[in-house]
């Protein structure tokens, strides 16, 4: 069973014929060849596949491609603009918010919605806000810092220090 759908991915409308059972994450990765969105589990637990659907973060392994018909999808490839990388991307690089990089795209897409809804979150709000996304490498400290940095930058406030802090 196949169906024709039209989805707008990172601003470009695309009409594709897809199997009804095709998962959105496979449409993004295989049919459209945007491989920045990753797959880390089969139970919607890890969040590596998180994208924005009409601006709301969603685990694209749990959405059928046909459900995205007529919708706007934003993936990690759509974060940067002609002016440069997004403050969230900058936050991750400046604060060592990633190691292997596998969870990073999904994490950043989740954070994009988080900061849109809550531009100045507390540490606890950040931690709960990203609790649907697993990272096995960083221990989360620097992801929290990355979000705080992005939050400051997006609000036009002074940027926090990106030097590592040590007890002494």
């Amino acid at each position: 069973m196949k169906k024709e759908i039209t989805v707008t991915i990172n601003g470009t409308p695309q009409t594709l014929e897809v199997e009804n059972r095709l998962l959105l994450v496979h449409l993004i990765r295989e049919n459209v060849s945007l491989t920045g969105t990753h797959i880390g589990c089969d139970t919607s637990s890890c969040g590596a596949c998180t994208v924005l659907i009409d601006g709301k973060s969603a685990k694209s392994c749990t959405v059928l491609a046909v459900q995205a018909d007529g919708k706007e999808i934003t993936t990690v490839e759509g974060l940067a603009t002609a002016e440069g990388i997004h403050p969230i991307q900058e936050g991750f690089k400046e604060n060592h918010g990633l190691h292997c990089g596998f969870c990073t795209p999904g994490m950043m897409m989740r954070i994009k919605e988080l900061l849109e809804k809550n531009p100045n979150p507390t540490e606890e709000e950040i931690r709960w806000g990203i609790s649907g996304n697993l990272c096995r490498c960083t221990g989360y400290n620097n992801i929290v810092k990355a979000v705080q940095y992005a939050s400051a930058k997006m609000r036009g406030e002074e940027l926090p220090s990106t030097e590592p802090e040590f007890v002494s």
Binding site: R29, S33, L34, T35, G36, T37, H38, I39, T75, V76, E77, L79, A80, I85, Q89, F92, K93, E94, H96, L98, C100, G101, F102, T104, P105, M108, E163, P164
Partner: peptide, 23 residues
């Protein structure tokens, strides 16, 4: 020196190349 990581530019922009990306 705590220099920022050289590998991060590709990872934060979805341009990493993991095995499932090989086609």
């Amino acid at each position: 020196h705590s220099i920022k990581r050289k590998e991060d530019d590709r990872f934060i922009q979805g341009k990493g190349n993991y095995v499932d990306d090989v086609k």
